[in-house]
Amino acid sequence: MKYMLLIHHGHSADDTSVWDALSEEEQQAVYADYYAINQTPGVTPGEGLDAAETATTVRVENGKPLVTDGPFVDIKEAIGGFLFFEADDLDAAIALAARIPAARLGGAVEVRPTKQW
């Protein structure tokens, strides 16, 4: 089963207060953790995302695109990035999600199975 792990960074992706409070050694450990996660068999690394304020939302009404600034969905936590993980089961995906530093630094990781279209 393929899972998408959506990484949430607290209330704002722009809020660096948690990161700034880490020592240089702790910051290097976070980098090392993300590197190790990206090297895990079955992981397809994603990318970090820019702030929600930079988003553009597209809807189609009456056959014409309607473009607005900002995110469509109002969420409590800022989405900071994502990755995909091919795993045997949900428990394996949860175990990987628990290794993602954002989950222990005030954020969360949403684990969602993907669909075949």
Rank of each mutant, 00 (worst) to 15 (best):
A32G: 13
H8N: 13
D50P: 11
G81Y: 13
L66T: 15
Q39N: 10
Y35C: 04
V67C: 09
E61A: 14
I37P: 00
E26K: 13
L22F: 15
A32H: 12
G46K: 03
P71K: 06
I37R: 09
V18G: 10
A29E: 05
E47A: 15
K64W: 12
L6T: 13
Y31P: 10
A36S: 04
A13Y: 08
N62S: 14
T54Y: 12
P65D: 14
K76M: 03
P45Q: 09
E26Q: 05
G63C: 05
T56R: 03
G80P: 00
D14H: 00
E47R: 15
P65M: 06
A78G: 02
T68K: 15
A55F: 00
D20C: 04
G10Q: 04
G81S: 04
L49G: 00
T40A: 13
D69I: 06
L22P: 03
T44M: 03
A55M: 00
T16K: 13
D74M: 11
P65H: 10
Q39W: 02
V60W: 06
E47I: 14
H9L: 15
I75L: 15
G80K: 06
K76T: 00
W19C: 01
K76E: 02
R59I: 14
V30H: 05
T68D: 02
L5Q: 04
D74I: 15
I79W: 07
T40S: 14
D69P: 13
A55L: 01
N62Q: 14
E24T: 12
D50W: 06
S23Q: 08
D74W: 10
G46H: 01
E77D: 08
T16G: 13
L22C: 10
T40M: 12
N38P: 12
W19M: 10
V58F: 06
T54G: 02
V73T: 09
A55G: 00
V67G: 08
E77S: 11
H11L: 13
P71G: 09
L22A: 00
L5P: 04
D50V: 13
T54V: 10
P65I: 07
V73G: 14
T54R: 01
E61R: 15
D69C: 01
G63A: 05
G42C: 06
Y34F: 13
G80M: 07
L66K: 14
T68C: 06
P41R: 00
T57I: 11
V73I: 04
V73Y: 11
E25I: 02
V43W: 06
V18N: 10
S23I: 01
I79S: 10
L49V: 11
L49E: 07
S12W: 01
L6F: 01
R59S: 11
I7D: 15
D74R: 04
H9C: 14
T44E: 13
A32F: 02
A55I: 08
G42T: 03
H11W: 09
L6I: 13
I79Y: 06
T68F: 05
G63R: 13
L66Y: 14
Y3I: 06
Y35K: 08
H11T: 01
G46S: 03
I7G: 12
Y35D: 15
A78D: 00
Y34K: 01
H8F: 11
V30P: 06
D33P: 01
T56Q: 07
R59M: 14
I75W: 12
N62Y: 11
E24I: 00
D69L: 02
T16D: 11
P45N: 05
D20G: 08
